[in-house]
Design a protein around this nucleic acid. Structure first.
Lengths: 217, 217
DNA sequence: ACCTGAACACCGTTCAAGT
DNA sequence: ACCTGAACACCGTTCAAGT
């Protein structure tokens, strides 16, 4: 137990180390410069050769998917922690606030997740986990009468991207603006102003179906 | 008056014709394949040489800006037409519905506008016009008691992008889903469920300031 | 097994000729 | 004036050598 932390399988020690260095470097570069930073730049920041990036992630998109998938899982964990809060409505609002905060710092995120979830199964899996947690939080809030009866966890997750997008055009100059839209959109989830909706909520089955449509490109 | 329709100035007839062919071809290609279609493909569809594209639009971004700017102006016109509708609340909802419908067909749009409004003055001007119309519609709806007192036209325009983004991940499989989120988000604008907002609305002055920040890249 | 950088393909942009 | 396609630069991806 000398502590080099070698992972399972025959993976070499430098490989696991490089993988982590790459993920960290990529996360930083993507956050700072958007998703079209040259891969060479990421490799340089990680201190490895350009070819090494492609040994770990077959494509640039897979590298993005790995980072965003991890991010979604972090949010799922936050949601889990809120499941036994006293006020279910406040818990749901806190979940949404945290979800949007995560994205608002970064550029792109929601666009990237939208574009990549279609092609990268890893991201789709993380999305489904997140939707599961969101549904649990939403169900509690519905039962408490804090949100409208027709709102689902899937709605809540999609509205995270919505609030982020609303604030994005001015995110540079008004770094706190996203909070305004989280609250406005949450007000739309309250029972008070609820009007009938013209379309049913999406189901997880439809999420899976959406992935297959990607073949048409 | 033989009808070749030459524009003002010394612009040659083939030039104005090519410009239009390019705009049409580009709009179609962008809508179908997203904003990373090769410019060569657009040129081919328009039936002109690749170099001609860059004679008319110095950069690919400017071509995108021209298309989206025009689109925003179309929406401004729709908004103008709704200014004397009988029910101001319904008029505002119709404006938002139309705005989101425009974007939902296409891929990208709101991401593109977000990214480009910073650098392309043409797009910023179109945005400001749109915000002006939206504010007029919103003011009427406020006075009629159909929307909350603290909602502005700027909010409304930003929420168009929000609703589009909400539906985007499943837009391929559930083409009508955007309507659900237009209504949900509009419910957040109603006076019924309104709670105090943590941040003030953006002002047009701040929009202008955001453009200058772009130098830091 | 994994790392590396040179080599390849693709695409945005420029430019020297053409009309 | 404007059109054109060949030439250039840049970046994602592949691969033959290296350890």
């Amino acid at each position: 137990m000398a502590g080099t932390g070698t992972a399972e399988g025959g993976t070499r020690a430098d490989a696991v180390r490089n993988r982590r260095l790459l993920l960290d470097a990529a996360a930083a570069e993507f956050a700072e410069h958007g998703m079209d930073v040259p891969i060479a730049r990421i490799a340089a920041r990680a201190g490895v050769g350009k070819g090494t990036v492609f040994r770990h992630f077959a494509t640039k998109e897979q590298l993005l998917a790995a980072i965003f998938g991890h991010r979604l899982d972090e949010l799922s964990a936050v949601g889990q922690g809120l499941l036994d809060a006293r006020d279910p409505g406040a818990a749901l609002l806190a979940f949404m606030t945290e979800g949007v905060r995560m994205q608002a710092g970064d550029r792109m995120f929601c666009q990237a997740v939208t574009a990549l979830a279609r092609t990268e199964p890893q991201l789709r899996a993380a999305s489904e986990r997140l939707i599961g947690v969101a549904e649990a939080l939403t169900a509690r809030a519905r039962r408490a009468g804090s949100v409208r009866e027709d709102a689902t966890g899937h709605d809540v997750v999609l509205l995270l991207g919505a609030a982020t997008q609303a604030a994005a055009p001015l995110g540079g100059t008004l770094p706190g603006l996203w909070r305004r839209y989280v609250h406005m959109i949450f007000d739309g989830l309250r029972p008070g102003a609820a009007h009938p909706l013209p379309e049913p909520p999406p189901t997880t089955a439809q999420l899976a179906a959406a992935a297959k449509t990607s073949a048409t490109s």
